[in-house]
C-alpha cells in the first residue's frame, strides 16, 4: 500500500485517477481503517485529502454553509452557525460513533461509505444538501441523495472525490430534526431512522417538507407522500398520523438480528412523527 498526501484537489484527482487497483480516499478514516483492519479491503493507494486547502473548513456561502469534506463531527458540533441553521444535520452527524470517532469522522465519509444506516445521510438528503465533487473533468455539484448507489456503492466515478458539502440557506421559520432507533443509548448503528426538514409560514403552517428515512432500504428513502401529508398542516394529529403511515409504507427494509421487517417498518413511522414534531417546534411552530 502507498500513502499519499496531495496538497491540492487536482493532485488528489490525478492520484485517484491514475492508480490502478484499489484506491481509497482517507478523510477521517473511521470506516476505512476498520475495513483495512478486518481485511475487507487492501488498498493499493490511500489518498489523504486532509491537506487540501479549505477541506478542513466550514465557510458561509450564499446564506448557507459549505462544509469541507474533512470537517469532523466534533468540529461541526463546535460551529454555532451550522448547528443553528441545520440542527437536524448536526445531530444526525454527531450521533455517529463515540466522542473519539467524532474527532475524526466526516459527513462526506459517511455519505461515501454508503451504508444504508449512515446517520449523517438522511438529514443531508432532507436538507437538499449538495456535494461538490472534484474529478478529472473539474468540479461538479451533485445532490447528496444521488451519491449512494446501494450498500457500499456510490455513483462517484474513477478519480472523483467529494471536497465539500453545501448546506443551503434557509428562510426564517425553518428547521430540521433527525431521530434513530438503536437498542442501546450510544455507540450503535441505526435500526431505523428518519430526518424531517420543514419550512413554516408566519402562521405556523408547513409550506415545505422533506422526509427521509434511513436503514429501511438500500439507500435513503425520500418519502414524498409523507412530506405531502405535512404540507398545509400545522403538524396536527391527522397530519402526523398520515406522515407515519406514509413513512411506514415507504419502507423496504431487511430482516436481520438488529430488527425485523415489521419492527423497522413500524418504528420508521413513529420516528417520522416524532422527528416532524421536533422540527416543527424548532422552526418556531406552535400548535
Amino acid at each position: 500500500m502507498r500513502y499519499a498526501r496531495p496538497a491540492t484537489a487536482a493532485e488528489a484527482v490525478t492520484l485517484l485517477g491514475q492508480q490502478a487497483g484499489i484506491v481509497r480516499v482517507l478523510g477521517g478514516g473511521t470506516d476505512l481503517l476498520v475495513q483495512m483492519r478486518s481485511g475487507m479491503i487492501e488498498p493499493d493507494l490511500v489518498v489523504d485529502i486532509k491537506h487540501i486547502p479549505g477541506i478542513n473548513e466550514i465557510r458561509a456561502e450564499a446564506g448557507g454553509f459549505r462544509v469541507g469534506a474533512a470537517v469532523s463531527g466534533a468540529a461541526l458540533g463546535d460551529h454555532a452557525g451550522v448547528c443553528a441553521l441545520w440542527p437536524g444535520v448536526a445531530e444526525g452527524f454527531q450521533l455517529i460513533g463515540s466522542t473519539q470517532v467524532q474527532g475524526r469522522a466526516t459527513m462526506a465519509g459517511n455519505l461515501c461509505n454508503a451504508s444504508p444506516a449512515g446517520d449523517a445521510v438522511p438529514a443531508l438528503v432532507a436538507a437538499e444538501a449538495v456535494a461538490r465533487i472534484e474529478g478529472p473533468e473539474g468540479a461538479r455539484d451533485c445532490p447528496v441523495a444521488a451519491i449512494p448507489a446501494g450498500p457500499g456503492r456510490t455513483t462517484l466515478k474513477k478519480g472523483e472525490f467529494i471536497s465539500s458539502i453545501l448546506l443551503p440557506a434557509r428562510p426564517e421559520r425553518a428547521s430540521d430534526a433527525y431521530l434513530r432507533f438503536i437498542p442501546r443509548t450510544e455507540m450503535d448503528i441505526a435500526v431505523a431512522s428518519c430526518a424531517v426538514s420543514l419550512v413554516l409560514d408566519s402562521a405556523g403552517t408547513i409550506t415545505v417538507a422533506r422526509v427521509a428515512l434511513g436503514a429501511v432500504a438500500p439507500t435513503v428513502v425520500l418519502v414524498e407522500a409523507g412530506a405531502s401529508a405535512l404540507v398545509g398542516s400545522k403538524a396536527g394529529v391527522p397530519a402526523l398520523a398520515a406522515l407515519a403511515a406514509a413513512a411506514s409504507a415507504a419502507c423496504a427494509p431487511i430482516d436481520d438480528k438488529r430488527g425485523t421487517i415489521e419492527f423497522r417498518t413500524e418504528v420508521a413511522g413513529v420516528l417520522a412523527r416524532r422527528a416532524a414534531e421536533t422540527a416543527y417546534a424548532r422552526a418556531g411552530g406552535r400548535k
Binding site: G29, S98, R104
Partner: peptide, 23 residues
Amino acid sequence: GTGDCGACSVMLNGRLVCSCLVL
C-alpha cells in the same frame, strides 16, 4: 482495533481520537 473500545484514546491536534483509527 476498530474504534469501539476507546482504550487507545489519544489527543491529535486537540481532538480526542482513537489512535487505532489514525495512520
